[in-house]
Structures are given as C-alpha cells and as structure tokens.
C-alpha cells in the first residue's frame, strides 16, 4: 500500500496547471481531494509520474447561486456543500445526497469536481448531476467548454473530458420552487458505495430520474422521467429497469440488484412526491 514515486506540483492558477498537464501528457494527473486517486496510487493501479495538486487554485473554489443557476467550483468539498445553507435551500437534493456519501472525514476532503470527473460508476454525484441536468465546465489549452452531465459519461472511468482538460465548475439549474426531490440509497454500511441509489426530481413541468452503481456509467432515463411526469410510476420503474445493467459483486447477484433498484427507486419517488408542493 505504498505508491510509486512521482513529482509534485501545486500550481497557483489554471493556466499553469494545464501547462503541466500538456508538458507531461498521460504521465500527469490532477488531484483534488485525492480520496479516489490516492488509494489507486497506493495499490499501484494508477500509474503517474506527475501529480498536480489543485488546492491552491482559487478559481476552483466557491459556491454561487445566481439567475437560476447554482455554480459550484470543482474544488468544493462535500462538507462545504452540506454546510452551505443557501445551496441547501435552493437545491435540497444535493445536501440529501452528499450526506449519504462516504464518511465525515472523506466528505471534508472529497470534492464535487473529483466525484463527478473521475468516472467511477460507484460515485453518487454523477447520477445526481444527470438528474439535475447539470453542466460541467472544462478548461483546456483550447479554452473552456461545457458538457452536459448527461453526455459526459462514456464508460467506467472514461468521460468526455480529455486528459489535457481540467473540470473547473459544475453549473446546476435551480429547480423550480415546490419541486419534489429525493435521494435514496441502499448501502451495506457507512462508507460503502451504493447497492442501488436513485435521484428523483418531480416538478410541475416534468420529472427527472437517475440511478447510481447499476451500470458502468450513471443511468439517466428520459423515458423514466417522462413516465413519472405523467404520473406513471410503474412505467418509470420499468423504463429504469430496462436501462440499468448491474454486475454481480460482494453486494449481491444481479437479480437482487435489479429488485432493489426498483424498490429504492419507488422509495425515492414516494419521498419526492410527498415533498412536492
């Protein structure tokens, strides 16, 4: 559990960070909270020669809410997200989900940017961001671009971000007031990834449903959302079950996961409906 050697960089701004990335190509990786990357490095499953620590880059921090959009700097930690009262009031779904991620220590270090950028199918934030229809801002040598969360995930650990880009911001449309919301997650214990987790929003003009750790990417289903918006809960569940593709692991066999996915989704829907104004 000892990582291989590397050189450490702590750039003060984004341009410098990207310069280092460009100079070293795929031998370089950025680190935010490090709670996904460092364990992989300790197992020597992440092979890198240059580690670029983003902690000193002020542009990656901060939470603002303006003009119907919440903007989270990529280096916002789960803890900061949970403690931000304005954000909790605007998008209570975020806080509800973040409290179910990992454990207190990991939430102090773990960042929203790291959670969404890593492409780990076990992470909770990717599905959540798809449910919320968030956009990710990427910064690279060519400038900035935005990618919708729903288009970002290609396969496990493969995303639309190029190796030479840094995810800088998450932009989340604030749901209309009165929108029902819920994040429901089944896990074996605190600190575990989801056996199944569901993010649900139900508003007056539509619904959105995404699930986590039931495929090699998060699963957002337009069909499920449409069904739910029309009040067809069973149609929503059926659409989602058709979209997921869980694998057997120590959490259980596939049949169990499919069953639980439906149960957890129904619970999230019930909870969201009860909160809808």
């Amino acid at each position: 559990m000892i990582p291989a050697g590397f050189e450490y960089h702590r750039p003060a701004d984004l341009a410098s960070a990207v310069d280092i990335l460009r100079a070293h190509g795929d031998e370089a990786r950025v680190v935010a909270g490090g709670h996904s990357l460092i364990p992989m490095m300790k197992l020597r499953m992440a092979d890198l020669r240059h580690l670029i620590d983003l902690q000193a880059i002020g542009a990656l921090k901060g939470i603002t809410i303006a003009e119907g959009t919440a903007t989270l700097g990529a280096m916002t930690t789960q803890h900061e997200l949970i403690e931000n009262a304005d954000l909790a009031a605007a998008i209570p779904l975020l806080r509800e989900a973040a409290l179910q991620i990992a454990d207190p220590q990991v939430r102090y270090m773990g960042t929203v940017g790291g959670n969404v950028a890593n492409g780990d199918p076990g992470n909770d934030m990717p599905g959540l961001m798809q449910c919320l229809d968030a956009r990710f801002e990427l910064y690279g040598a060519e400038g900035t671009r935005q990618v919708a969360a729903r288009d970002f995930y290609e396969a496990a650990y493969f995303t639309a971000r190029s190796d030479l880009e840094i995810l800088t911001k998450i932009l989340i449309p604030v749901p209309a007031s009165g929108t029902g919301y819920a994040y429901a997650k089944q896990k074996r214990k605190i600190g575990d990834y989801a056996t199944a987790a569901a993010a649900v929003l139900i508003g007056s003009d539509g619904a959105s449903v995404a699930m986590t750790n039931l495929s090699d990417t998060p699963v957002w289903s337009e069909e499920a959302g449409t069904a739910l918006a029309s009040g067809d809960i069973e149609g929503c569940v059926a659409a989602m079950l058709a979209a997921i593709d869980p694998q057997e692991d120590m959490r259980g066999p596939i049949a169990f996961k499919k069953h639980v996915a439906a149960v957890i989704l129904r619970r999230a829907i019930d909870s969201a409906l009860s909160r809808r104004a």
């Binding site: 490090g34 364990p39 220590q105 102090y108």
Partner: peptide, 27 residues
Amino acid sequence: CETSHCGACTVDMGGKSVKSCTVFACQ
C-alpha cells in the same frame, strides 16, 4: 487499514478531520 476506511490515522488539518493515510505530506 490504509484504504481510508478505519480513521485510526485521523488528524485535524485546517479545521477538518482528515485521514492522514490518504493525504501526501507535500499536500
């Protein structure tokens, strides 16, 4: 545990509880 599960290595860093097995000293 070395995998940031057990918390035996917890220190307080900048007002946060941190698992020091999952932070490099240079950070």
